[in-house]
Design a protein around this nucleic acid. Structure first.
Length: 856
RNA sequence: GGAUGCUUAGCUCAGCGGGAGAGCAUCGCCCUUACAAGGCGGGGGUCGUAGGUUCGAAACCUACAGCAUCCACCA
């Protein structure tokens, strides 16, 4: 027998291991239709956070649901080596021991990194188990494993041979702390407060001075020119002259180019080709040299003269002081501008000229754009997120893929002393070749995840059967990083989209709506939440508290509500089990033997199954859960469970009602199970006639013959009567169990109404087809009076209020039905519905008027 | 500068073309043998503003305002 209160800890214990041991997570039943997905691989940087829970729980619900729907579901698990992120963590750990990666050297550093991976990989496995992910461990992968590495090399080599990967010198984003190049998407722009320095440049052979403003004075050592707009009347006459760079006294040509915006700053702009992408483009146009003044740690080089060796900011301050002392500083303004920071280290990114490997994106992006115009496009849910992909593909720059890191896939390019480059799957034969020191951007391998995890580039049975995958679930924040790249790599290398559907979810924020971040210290550990409310409540909360694609706030209140809901289902099950009794043998519902209330609840159940399944098929977990919730609370627990106590005490009806109770509670459990598998399993196993596990069950099937609006109307009427009388008692200050006498006129749709009224409304006497002195209630086809010590005036008052209400209802209906436009254009069933309502209200009004008359 | 989303009950949010909903909070009554971390009942909203489309708008369109996010630019 179940305990009185649902205890998540007891319920969760041991189940996952059993499922895993029994092999329920393993795919491969080829008699069924395949359905597949890959896990968004968590980084092996640390523990799971709530973001991972949001990434994986919807998947788990899909997997469990689709299994019940009869599919052979494969969910591929795995983890991401997360190059730069993990390396930063490992380096941080070493730094605390006073060691740098350079002290260790590459080999030993990698050993430490692999130890780190194993440690955190174990933690992640424990957490997957804790949150109940039904992933197929026999197919688990890691982005640095041999298979993925081979796929990475294959892709690199092929793209190189196709001319889609090239090595080039360009301005890239340099992280001076981690000492590596970054791609554009790894740079976070924030509006930072800075200073705008106005310097005086003497014009050679002239008395004039030119004012040039800059935010980065330290780069002035790398300047090669000053630009103004060619038509700028302030400066037009000076074009062609030279000005003196106040940083180092060198002569710089003053040039005119329409790129310059005369309204910005002073309209004169210094050009630093090696440290700014726009200046780089100008320099290329005019053939200027590219002069680097910063080293890989953002310290000044020898070109900075006396400032050589200084950090860039140190140099900035010192240089400004020097220029000021020499009288060439006009002013300093406060200035807010967008500054790029490294996503991982937070360091201010330095644009720098550097030789790196790039992916030529245009042809790959065009292919995706074409694909998204075809039948085989990747479908986004919600649809608007497709625009994010399209926009990125339209505007994409070449992708810088080389990283000056050690943790990752080493670039399969080899060099020799003759300056030759060899790119291939294996190292070239012969002496004197050395491999490129750099590794690839971690997203390079993530981009291959959906097909490489299934065996590509080899033609494996899994790849044939499960690719393309069915669905991918991920946050909108990594559409660029991951989704976009999976799409173009997949289409280029497999000629297929990687997944048919992408379900995009929002981000989880803290209770005040702020992003969870380390610096704010407002992150919430899922393990703490589980400790407090249980996994099932967490799973339910995370999938049912925001509309698709919108952000969600963490809320203890909502977790508690979820937990209470589960307790409700728990206790409803407990009650049904008590009612069925020991040794109950489940029976099919005998449709002919059903009581009207049984028919009511069964019809509501079928409507619920239909609506829930529809929403589950659309991956609309909020919608599906809402429908189920209303059914569980309002129809089943609050109403039917109570009312059925009447028929249970009737030997003639007991059997059918028991069968109904069993069917309804069982199907509720099966529907809540994908969301909350632990309590789902526990409750399922408590039912008579259960299989070995709920994981072997099929989803409730909609039975049309039980779905009847007419039956629902009957139950609805009883519900309304009971609610109205309870409200009446409450408003009169009567205790809920105060005894009353009542009478009704008219035909009630089912027998035994008296029993219900006396049992649930404490009617001491119920007269049929009679009338009492008292307050009257008018229902569809039934007129009910309660005898109480209520004075006539109060009764009249009540009836007058009801009359007013009905009159306004009737006015509304008549207005609608007398509108020719409505009659002509509204759907027929809507018109019929309104007519029916109007007729009903008119009948009610008649009764009210009659009652009033009798009282007059 | 471009794009997207949000604005609904005190709070947090659903609903997105046919009579305003949930959770929490609030008020009242109940320890009724499934559940007191509960049950039952009640109060509370001119659905951001202004136009428009429609027989009918919280929902669709346009403009505006506020908030948030993304992209681009920023000498």
């Amino acid at each position: 027998m179940l305990e009185k209160r649902y205890d998540p800890k007891k319920v969760e214990s041991g189940k996952y291991q059993t499922w895993k041991d029994k092999g329920y997570f393993t795919a491969g039943d080829t008699s069924k239709q395949p359905f597949s997905l890959v896990i968004p691989p968590p980084n092996v940087t640390g523990k799971l956070h709530l973001g991972h829970v949001m990434d994986t729980i919807p998947d788990d619900i899909i997997v469990r649901y689709k299994k019940m729907m009869g599919y052979d579901v494969l969910w591929v698990p795995g983890m991401d080596h997360a190059g730069i992120a993990t390396q930063a963590k490992v380096e941080e750990k070493l730094r605390k021991q006073g060691i740098s990666r350079y002290d260790l050297g590459r080999e030993r550093f990698l050993k430490v990194a692999w130890d780190w991976k194993r440690e955190y990989g174990d933690t992640i496995h424990e957490q997957w188990a804790k949150i109940g992910l039904s992933v197929d461990y026999t197919r688990e992968r890691f982005t640095l494993d041999e298979g993925l590495s081979e796929a990475v090399r294959k892709v690199f080599v092929t793209l190189y041979e196709e001319g889609l990967i090239y090595q080039g010198e360009k301005i890239i984003n340099w992280d001076p702390e981690l000492r590596t190049a970054l791609s554009n998407v790894e740079v976070i722009h924030t509006d930072d407060e800075g200073e705008f320095f106005y310097f005086l440049y003497d014009v050679v052979d002239s008395d004039e001075t030119l004012v040039v403003a800059t935010t980065r004075p330290e780069t002035m050592f790398g300047d090669t020119a000053v630009f103004v707009h060619p038509e700028d009347p302030r400066y037009k006459h000076l074009i062609g002259k030279y000005v003196i760079n106040p940083a180092n006294g060198e002569k710089l040509p003053l040039m005119g180019d329409a790129y310059v915006d005369p309204s910005f700053g002073t309209g004169a702009m210094k050009c630093t080709p090696a440290h700014d992408p726009n200046d780089f483009a100008l320099a290329k146009k005019y053939g200027f040299p590219f002069i680097k003044v910063l080293d890989e740690t953002a310290k000044m080089n020898e070109l900075a003269g006396e400032f050589c060796g200084m950090d860039r900011y140190e140099c900035r301050d010192a240089l400004v002081e020097k220029i000021k002392a020499e009288g060439h500083l006009q002013k300093i303004e406060r200035f807010t501008h967008s500054v790029g920071h490294s996503e991982r280290s937070g360091a201010v990114v330095e644009p720098m000229l550097s030789k790196q490997w790039f992916v030529r994106m245009r042809p790959l992006a065009d292919r995706v754009l074409a694909q998204q115009n075809s039948e085989d496009k990747v479908e986004f849910l919600p649809a608007r997120f497709e625009k994010v992909l399209i926009r990125w593909m339209n505007e994409v720059d070449d992708w810088c893929i080389s990283r000056q890191l050690w943790w990752g896939h080493r670039i399969p390019a080899y060099y020799n002393d003759k300056g030759e480059v060899y790119v291939g799957m294996e190292a070239p034969k012969g002496e004197g070749w050395r491999q490129d020191e750099d590794v690839l951007d971690t997203w390079f391998s993530s981009a291959l995840w959906p097909f490489a995890t299934l065996g590509w580039p080899h033609k494996t049975p899994d790849f044939d059967r499960y690719f393309p995958t069915s669905v991918l679930n991920t946050g909108y924040d990594i559409i660029f990083f991951w989704v976009a790249r999976m799409v173009f790599q997949s289409e280029h290398f497999t000629d297929k989209r990687p997944f048919k559907t992408v379900v995009i979810h929002g981000l989880i924020r803290d209770e005040q709506g702020r992003k969870m971040s380390k610096s704010l210290g407002n992150g919430i550990d899922p393990i703490d939440v589980i400790e407090k409310y249980g996994v099932d409540a967490l799973r339910y909360f995370i999938t049912t508290n925001s509309a698709p694609g919108l952000d969600m706030r963490y809320s203890d209140e909502k977790l508690n509500a979820a937990s209470n809901y589960l307790n409700k289902i728990w206790n409803a099950t407990r009650y049904v089990l008590q009612t069925l009794g020991e040794g109950y043998v489940p029976e099919e519902v005998d449709e002919k033997a059903l009581d009207p209330l049984d028919r009511y609840i069964l019809s509501r159940l079928e409507g619920t199954i239909q609506a829930v399944s529809e929403r589950m098929d659309e991956y609309n977990f909020l919608g599906a859960s809402g429908v189920l919730y209303d059914f569980v609370y309002d129809d089943f627990c609050s109403f039917y469970l109570e009312m059925s106590k009447v028929s249970l005490s009737d030997p003639g009806k007991e059997k059918a009602t028991k069968a109904t109770l069993y069917k309804v509670i069982r199907e509720i459990i099966l529907m809540i199970y994908p969301y909350c598998p632990f309590i789902g399993e526990e409750l399922y196993l408590s039912l008579p006639g259960h299989k070995e596990s709920v994981m072997l069950e099929t989803y409730p099937k909609y039975v049309a013959s039980l779905h009847s609006p007419k039956d629902e109307k009957n139950g609805q009427l009883l519900k309304e009567i009971i609610t109205a009388i309870r409200g009446y008692k409450s408003s009169k200050g009567l205790a809920p169990n105060a005894s009353i006498r009542m009478a009704f006129e008219g035909a009630f749709p089912f027998e035994g109404i008296q029993t219900y009224l006396s049992r649930f409304l404490f009617a001491s006497e119920v007269k049929e087809n009679a009338k009492l002195h008292g307050e009257a209630f008018v229902f569809d086809g039934a007129n009910l009076t309660i005898e109480q010590d209520v004075d006539k005036a109060t009764i009249v008052e009540g009836l007058l209020a009801e009359k007013e209400r009905l009159l306004s209802e009737i006015a509304r209906g008549e207005k609608m039905l007398s509108n020719p436009g409505f009659l002509a254009k509204a759907p027929a069933d809507k018109v019929a519905l309104e007519q029916e309502k109007l007729a009903g209200n008119k009948a009610k009004l008649e009764t009210v008027l009659k009652n009033l008359e009798e009282l007059a």
